[in-house]
């Protein structure tokens, strides 16, 4: 029964080797799907290229459905997996800042690593920017500490907030995703008639 490392079924000495292997797979999938190109990524915001949405939503729903079935089969103990804690207001502010950074910078941290790997100078600059951004955050942290810890809701799950079962939420999420897949396909078809095809580098 999983998760294997927290339940001690794999010794924690393997931690870093597993981290490296998972990272390689993650990097490979990101690069192979075209996320080493910032113009390919930001296409999602201009309607000419929805690969981000397709990729992202498919990954989330596959993982969600998979976790539910793993839980049902008794292969994984969902109480043992890490649920990201919710700090409502700082998370909303953080996500808005990240959204602006995303549209200006054209990468997110994970994708910028893969772009560095294939020799994108802008990705290197973006990563240096990340470094600087976290450095600035850390330096001014004493002044924003109160806000950083505000709105703490603990390790709360979506189903606990909405009051529906996890399974039902997964189903609703899949329906929304499939509708999004279809609608964005229509938008993409329309937009591509009016926009000049761009050249990937």
């Amino acid at each position: 029964m999983g998760p294997l490392i927290p339940l001690g079924q794999i010794s924690s000495g393997w931690d870093f080797i597993i981290a490296l292997i998972i990272g390689i797979a993650f990097g490979f999938i990101l690069e192979a799907s075209g996320f080493s190109s910032s113009r390919n990524i930001t296409g999602v915001f201009y309607g000419y290229n929805f690969v981000v949405l397709r990729f992202f939503f498919t990954a989330v729903i596959v993982a969600m459905i998979g976790l539910e079935y793993f839980d049902y089969m008794g292969w994984i103990d969902l109480n043992m997996i890490y649920i990201l804690p919710t700090y409502l207001s700082p998370m909303i502010v953080g996500a808005i800042i990240m959204g602006v950074g995303f549209i200006i910078g054209g990468f997110c941290p994970g994708t910028s690593y893969t772009a560095i790997a294939i020799g994108k100078l802008d990705a290197i600059v973006f990563t240096l920017g990340l470094f600087l951004g976290i450095f600035i955050f850390s330096e001014i942290f004493p002044y924003i500490e109160d806000f950083y810890y505000s709105g703490n809701m603990g390790n709360i799950t979506i189903s606990e907030v909405l009051g529906i079962s996890n399974k039902l939420f997964t189903f609703i999420f899949v329906i929304i995703a499939v509708i999004a897949f279809y609608v964005t396909w229509l938008i993409e078809k329309k937009v591509r008639k009016t926009i000049n095809p761009y050249k990937f580098e």
Partner: peptide, 17 residues
């Protein structure tokens, strides 16, 4: 897409675990 919907919809019909 149909497969995804069936898979996730199937979750709702699983007997109580």
């Amino acid at each position: 897409f149909g497969l995804l919907i069936v898979l996730s919809g199937g979750l709702l019909f699983l007997p109580e675990k």
